[in-house]
């Protein structure tokens, strides 16, 4: 598994071409719920008084996501904003703060952030949630793996019930828990921990 990172940490990251030119910065991180992958980024300008750009960066145009910058081959990879996210999608698709439910209808918290895998995949690995009593009495932020059949909209996130058994307190240990969850889920008859 590649390095895991919080999606909100990508906001504000500078977009740099392979020629060394800083051309924009990341504004919103857009991911496809059913596919579970980053589809692209909306952009804003880099000047002090610069606002949102009308162009966006599809994930197919990303060369690499690094800790300091998002690298692209050149500005030719930019597309119209609607190619990544439409205006209506943006208004109704904000996932931060959405309630998290298990498939059995139990509320376990609210979405605090999205955990993504950097590198080539842009895969959504799980979610950081602000836990409710049922999951954690101290109401800490914990990490929950993403199910294969994830249902997510701007209104609610639904995770498999057994995902609660693969919760982690921090990002480094969450990587192992996410792998264990995937292994358990793909096992024949998987779905509940033994």
């Amino acid at each position: 598994m590649n390095t895991l990172e919080l999606a909100s940490g990508l906001s504000g990251r500078v977009v740099v071409t392979l020629g060394g030119e800083a051309v924009a910065q990341v504004k919103d991180v857009v991911f496809d719920g059913p596919a579970g992958r980053i589809t692209g980024f909306t952009l804003s300008g880099r000047g002090l008084l610069a606002g949102p750009m009308k162009r966006s960066l599809p994930f197919s145009g990303v060369h690499a996501i690094g800790p300091s910058a998002v690298m692209i081959a050149g500005e030719t990879v930019f597309e119209d904003r609607d190619a990544v996210v439409g205006r209506g999608e943006a208004e109704h698709g904000k996932v931060l703060g959405a309630p998290v439910l298990t498939e059995h209808g139990t509320g376990i918290g609210t979405v605090a952030d999205v955990v993504v895998e950097t590198g080539a995949s842009g895969r959504v690995v799980g979610f950081e949630i602000l836990a409710e009593d049922h999951l954690d009495r101290r109401h800490r932020k914990v990490f929950v793996p993403r199910g294969e059949a994830l249902a997510v909209s701007g209104e609610a996130l639904v995770v498999p019930a057994h995902a609660q058994h693969f919760v982690a307190d921090d990002l480094p240990s969450f990587a192992a828990q996410a792998e264990a969850f995937l292994t358990h889920t793909r096992r024949p008859g998987g779905g509940r921990p033994s």
């Binding site: 999606a7 909100s8 906001s11 504000g12 910065q25 990341v26 504004k27 919103d28 991180v29 857009v30 991911f31 496809d32 719920g33 059913p34 596919a35 992958r37 980053i38 589809t39 692209g40 909306t42 804003s44 300008g45 002090l48 008084l49 610069a50 606002g51 949102p52 599809p58 994930f59 197919s60 145009g61 990303v62 060369h63 690499a64 996501i65 996210v85 439409g86 999608e89 943006a90 698709g93 904000k94 996932v95 931060l96 952030d113 999205v114 590198g119 080539a120 995949s121 842009g122 895969r123 997510v152 909209s153 701007g154």
Partner: peptide, 24 residues
């Protein structure tokens, strides 16, 4: 301007082909 530039995380529903795995 800082509010206009501040970002969030957005989910869309564009089917299982959204976001090419080999993009980066």
């Amino acid at each position: 301007q800082s509010r206009r530039r501040s970002g969030t995380v957005i989910t869309v529903r564009r089917g299982r082909t959204g976001g090419r795995a080999g993009g980066a």
